[in-house]
């Protein structure tokens, strides 16, 4: 029993089982009288026009891209942060250079107006 991930795996199973059980009990107890009006899409009383697939701002995608770059960066930094206190001083500067290069990217995106919502 070396592997702690077995415990996490069991936790996932139980964590799924409890909400499923709650929904199943509710489905068993609740009334089932569907009708067309009740099941129509809720839009404050007005009838829905078209379907829910509306065009979104491209800006969402840009922010997701910037996020992706920084997410990968933090993943690289985690082992560095854990080992830092056991490493020589220049290791700190290596990490700082790593962060500065990426912050330069953020500044570039900022100056190019990519971080504006409008």
């Amino acid at each position: 029993m070396q592997n702690p991930w077995i415990y996490i795996g069991l936790f996932v199973l139980v964590g799924m089982f409890i909400p499923i059980a709650a929904i199943a009990i509710a489905a068993f107890l609740g009334p089932k009288k569907p009708n067309a009006i009740k099941q129509s899409t809720y839009e404050c009383g007005i009838e829905t026009v078209g379907d829910s697939w509306i065009q979104f701002k491209a800006q969402y995608y840009i922010f997701a891209l910037v996020f992706l770059v920084f997410d990968v960066e933090t993943v690289f930094l985690f082992p560095w942060a854990v080992a830092l206190n056991k490493l020589p001083l220049f290791a700190v500067f290596e990490g700082i250079i790593f962060i500065l290069i990426l912050l330069a990217g953020l500044v570039y995106a900022w100056k190019k107006g990519m971080l504006e919502w409008a």
Binding site: Y61, E73, F76, E94, I97, I101, G105, L106, A109, M114
Partner: peptide, 22 residues
């Protein structure tokens, strides 16, 4: 490790460039 950060920077600049063009 350091090249990875340059690569990420290039990805970011590329994304910004493409988005600016669009």
């Amino acid at each position: 490790f350091e090249v990875a950060s340059v690569l990420l920077l290039a990805a970011l600049i590329g994304a910004v460039y493409v988005a600016n063009e669009a």
